[in-house]
Design a protein around this nucleic acid. Structure first.
Length: 636
RNA sequence: GCCAACGUAGCUCAGUUGGUAGAGCAGCGCAUUCGUAAUGCGCAGGUCCAGGGUUCGAGUCCCUGUGUUGGCUCCA
């Protein structure tokens, strides 16, 4: 017999090997509604897990993450069960719970159409009403393989064959449906409600493009109806702030069929871009950078020397000039190397921080293109820092500080990821280890949390990636700090040390926004198009009440322009409500309304896009106020 | 690149079982001169993504290409 302690402190004796589920449900109604992963001595386990010794036991409820995981995983099994019923002969691949729901991959002759989803949802509802008990059983390896093969599931057989020798091979069954699965699960399909199928997609078996493309159905499920509705509303809200939609509505940028993946910046988008760059230049000046610009087209020999011709050729656009091969640059570094090499350097020059807003072109797969988030032509806010090994750590620390300062300016949250040596790397493992260790130390010094992404570094060195979070919670890799141990070697960079000898510098390759274009996409969604005043393409719209007030309104506009405020005029013969509506939809921070009353009183009526009508004030007062807001780069 | 869906006026979208196109908004004109999110009337606007095919006849059906969207893969 063993003793199990429950969350309320109560204790009971059970036979050895009792399942967590049985143990918990035996103590009555308090836990009856609970589902279904279990926490045994603080460790998350399957609710069907047999318990062999004294322990504390808590069943994770729907509200707990573990329960939600089990809940959605069971929903994914119900989806598979429904599909098997409706389309017999369908082969099952995998169907996990994921962050916002679950999916299941199928291999079937039938091509799913959007209409099918409603049909499948109905069948899932039936399965829920049938209240099928979920049970678990285990089979030895060979039997398990024979079992799934008999059931016509070759993908499952492949999965079992790849499991480690000593793995426990478990199956979960609900009604006629059986699936290879480690669990945990809800104990009854009747408990899993509010399942909604979201979308169809293709997905390669085991994520490799060499394998067959399967059909994936995405869905989500929530314990409470209200939570599902809230989630669906959130998706709708996110759609409203899609930067592609806002980009068109606000006249920021466009992408034409004539140039897939090559964005056009419109006048207002250009103001935004230039303002951003101005801010960037100012910060880099403070952090001791110089700025350069290198050519867009450079010879094949250069790309061979840098290693890009070997490692990156598939993504490079090439051209021929006077019968010689050239490439349009996909990265700025080789050009930067040439600048460094153009003159000799002393240790006194280091660290040398050389920034470049470089326009790069990369041939991205057509299916990967996405507004400004993924394009084929973008401006990298690049910089190369040449330094000694001793200076490396401090340089990284200061770079992380610069990044933090800039991201905070926009109120953006970010995550840092450390990527280590990949398979196709260049250079010695010892150098890699040293560089990776230095990166780790530097980031620890800044006190920022980070995650490690094994084997995801660039071929020339380990890197720190900064992932910014957008409005829907998607993360986008923007900033990056990459140690480059290869370029200085390949280009034979040197500096003369205090000892009078030649030494090889080490290099950091870094980008803060990553891509100006992507960053603009991210902040467009982040602010839902309502940019802070300092960034807004139009900061003030001057509205004349009637034709009589045009001259006075024009004077107001000119006065604002004297102070470099970005002004737009609306002197049209329209009702004031209509003009306000348009300015409001354009998300212009301030509207100044000039009518007879304002003219008489020598004031302007101020309307803020956020607070609405804020009353009248003298123009000079408004200018002082907005100037302060712009200079401090305030967020509203 | 792969899987799927889609492509009709500047934008958002209708367009029945094939019988050569419509609405709202935007634009332009006229009237109106108005007080904090839509004044009224009128006019104009389309190689129905492109190219083939089926048909007496194609926006509608088929094929190919292209672009977009959602994913996969890849990535700033």
């Amino acid at each position: 017999m063993i003793n199990i302690t429950f969350p309320d402190g109560s204790r009971r004796e059970f036979e050895q090997g009792v399942t967590a589920l049985d143990a918990a449900s035996s103590i009555g109604s308090r836990l009856k509604k609970a589902t279904l992963a279990a926490e045994i001595d603080g460790e998350r386990r399957d609710a069907f897990a047999p318990i062999g010794k004294d322990c504390t036991l808590k069943l994770l409820t729907f509200e707990d993450e573990g329960g939600r995981w089990a809940y959605r995983h069971t929903a994914s099994h119900m989806l598979a069960q429904a599909v098997k019923r409706l389309y017999p002969g369908t082969k099952l691949a995998i169907g996990p719970a994921i962050e916002n729901g679950f999916y299941y991959d199928f291999d079937t002759e039938h091509t799913f159409a959007p209409e099918d989803l409603a049909l499948i949802e109905k069948e899932i509802e039936k399965i829920e009403k049938e209240e099928l008990a979920v049970s678990r059983f285990e089979l030895p390896r060979e039997e398990a393989i024979a079992y799934v093969e008999k059931r016509g599931e070759p993908y499952k057989a492949e999965l079992i064959r790849d499991l480690p020798e000593d793995a426990v091979i478990s199956f979960y069954q609900q009604g006629e449906f059986v699936d290879l699965c480690a669990g945990p699960h809800a104990d009854n399909t009747g408990k899993v409600k509010n399942i909604k199928l979201m979308s169809l997609a293709g997905a390669y078996w085991r994520g490799s493009e060499k394998n067959k493309m399967l059909q994936r159905i995405y869905g989500t499920a929530f314990e409470k109806r209200a939570a599902l509705d809230e989630y669906l509303t959130r998706i709708e809200e996110a759609k409203k702030r899609d930067h592609r939609k806002l980009g068109r509505e606000l006249g920021l940028f466009m992408v034409a069929d004539e140039g897939p993946g090559f964005p056009f910046f419109l006048p207002k988008g250009m103001v935004l871009k230039n303002t951003l760059i101005e801010c960037w230049r100012e910060a880099h000046k403070r952090y001791g950078y110089v700025e350069i610009s290198t050519p867009i087209i450079l010879s094949r020999q250069l790309w061979e020397r840098s290693g890009h011709w070997d490692h990156y050729k598939n993504n490079m656009y090439t051209t021929v000039i006077d019968e010689a091969d050239y490439s349009i640059k996909p990265m700025n570094c080789p050009g930067g190397m040439l600048v460094y090499k153009a003159e000799p350097h002393s240790y006194r020059d280091l660290p040398l921080r050389m920034a470049e807003l470089g326009l790069v072109h990369r041939h991205e797969l057509s299916g990967a293109l996405h507004g400004l988030f993924r394009v084929r032509c973008f401006t990298q806010d690049d910089a190369h820092i040449f330094m000694t090994w001793e200076q490396m750590k401090d340089e990284i620390v200061s770079t992380v500080r610069l990044f933090d300062e800039m991201y905070s300016l926009f109120g953006l949250k970010y995550k840092i990821e450390l990527s280590t040596m990949p398979e196709n790397h260049m250079g010695e493992k010892e150098t890699w280890d040293f560089a990776t260790e230095t990166l780790k130390q530097a980031i620890c010094e800044t006190g920022k949390p980070f995650e490690i992404n094994e084997g995801d570094g660039a071929f020339y060195g380990p890197k720190l990636d900064f992932h910014l979070e957008d409005s829907i919670g998607r993360t986008w890799q923007c900033g990056t700090i990459q140690l480059d141990m290869q370029m200085p070697e390949r280009f034979e960079l040197e500096y003369i040390g205090a000892d009078g000898e030649r030494h090889r510098p080490v290099m950091i390759h870094r980008a803060l926004f990553g891509s100006i274009e992507r960053f603009i996409g991210v902040i467009t969604e982040h602010f839902a198009g309502a940019f802070p005043t300092w960034l807004a393409p139009v900061q003030v719209k001057v509205l004349a009440m009637t034709d009589r007030n045009q001259t006075a309104a024009e004077n107001v506009a000119r006065e604002l322009e004297k102070y470099n405020v970005r002004v737009e005029r609306d002197f049209r013969n329209e009702k004031i409500g209509f003009k306000i509506r348009e300015a409001q939809m354009q998300k212009i921070p301030y509207m100044l309304i000039v009518g007879d009353k304002e003219e008489e009183g020598g004031v302007v009526a101020v309307r803020s896009r956020k607070k609405g009508d804020v009353g009248t004030m003298p123009l000079a007062g408004f200018i002082r106020q907005i100037n302060d807001e712009i200079l401090t780069r305030a967020r509203d």
